[in-house]
Design a protein around this nucleic acid. Structure first.
Lengths: 220, 220
DNA sequence: GTCTCCCATCATAGATACAAGCTGAGATGC
DNA sequence: GCATCTCAGCTTGTATCTATGATGGGAGAC
């Protein structure tokens, strides 16, 4: 399910018409190209990809489960609009999930060294992107950093859930904020501080620090 | 998405072959009638329900997204076995989600009175079932109690996620433990204590109390 | 007896065909 | 002009059909 997790971007040797339909449609929704509330049909996507309706149907079902599409029985599919308060909900959920991962680490200190190594690697990458001023790459590294924290906890359920949160965050950011170049070093510093807290296995200190960090980045 | 949330158990006027297939298959997996690791095919379910394979395929896809089925390209569907450590993961996740809900309540005290009323109602029901010694009803009320806490937080994302956790918990309990009659009053008492903490809006006290409670019930 | 290769069998993936429901625009009556 | 009725067109839901891939068991070589 999270197959493309840590592998190189291009890998899937599976052409799979259903997957293509899924990815395309999801991308259209997440980027806002299909705006919230928009009604469209399986046929449109099918034609656009040159496939039959069957794989598109499959894609729509997955997206409905993810809560991005609302399938109306004999009418079509509507893009679920970003609900009011979604930003708050996503941030709360992210905080809860990441904090849970760190709590687990505090209980299982043997997992910490490996986690630290991965986090430092990601952070180095992110710092390089910040220095280079590459905003998209920076944002991607940022997402990877936080996901790495969650992955370090080793809780598959939380990791999968976190992936859906990242999707929603991406969709929101599309319409709202983009990273401010001047703040990039600040973000890197805060990440460094988070790593220090993880290293100290101080689970109680992590949650407030993370909240402050997320607030600063996403609620300015 | 969580349409059947608070409505009476049976209601959906939509016969929908796809839904029937979904519910049947999910039940077979959750009850363990289809054991973990078992390989089966769309055709079996299709024949059993007297429908074509198409709606069954739909059901299988949903179950794959939920992580209960693993669809192998040209082979069939295997029931994902309960992974080792799943119990720990579910409990950690439940703790994280419920605690997040209570943190939100602590930040939004205006939501607390309504939450308390709902919780007391559910708890009364549960107490009655305990007195009557109705174990299944007690277990159901127990699940509703905890879900009510999450719902009170008003975070749709967390509530939906929590529903999937409840499914997994149900599946695990099928193979492992069942409630011990002698402990029922104790559970009610602990729930009462949790409500008191919510009433006091003491978010910091909630997480440890919940962990102790869940440990007592599910990790004895 | 054991290993290898080949193919009959079975399962999915996708395309196509068909049935049934919803909707909105235009016709109709007043 | 306005309300209502009707129906053509579009969309989904399900069934059926075809192509392709995977597998396991048996024939045959050794």
């Amino acid at each position: 399910m999270l197959a493309s997790m840590l592998m190189t971007p291009a890998k899937n040797a599976a052409p799979g018409a259903a997957d293509r339909a899924y990815r395309l449609t999801k991308e259209l929704v997440l980027t806002g190209e299909l705006p919230g509330g928009h009604l469209f049909s399986e046929g449109e996507i099918a034609e656009r990809l040159g496939v039959s309706r069957t794989p598109v149907r499959e894609a729509f079902l997955r997206l409905q489960v993810e809560g991005l599409l609302n399938l109306i029985p004999k009418r079509g599919a509507v893009v679920v609009p970003v609900p009011p308060g979604e930003a708050e909900d996503v941030l709360d959920a992210r905080e809860a999930v990441e904090a849970a991962a760190v709590r687990r680490l505090a209980r299982r200190p043997d997992l910490i060294p490996d986690a630290l190594e991965r986090l430092h690697t990601v952070l180095d990458t992110q710092r390089a992107h910040a220095d280079a001023g590459d905003l998209p790459a920076f944002a991607e590294a940022d997402e990877l950093f936080h996901r790495t924290i969650v992955a370090a906890g080793g809780n598959t359920l939380l990791l999968d859930f976190y992936a859906t949160l990242a999707d929603r965050q991406r969709r929101m950011n599309m319409h709202a904020l983009r990273p401010i170049p001047a703040r990039l070093p600040e973000v890197v510093d805060e990440h460094t501080a988070l790593i220090a807290i993880i290293e100290a296995a101080d689970a109680d200190a992590f949650a407030p620090a993370l909240r402050a960090h997320l607030d600063g980045v996403h609620r300015r």
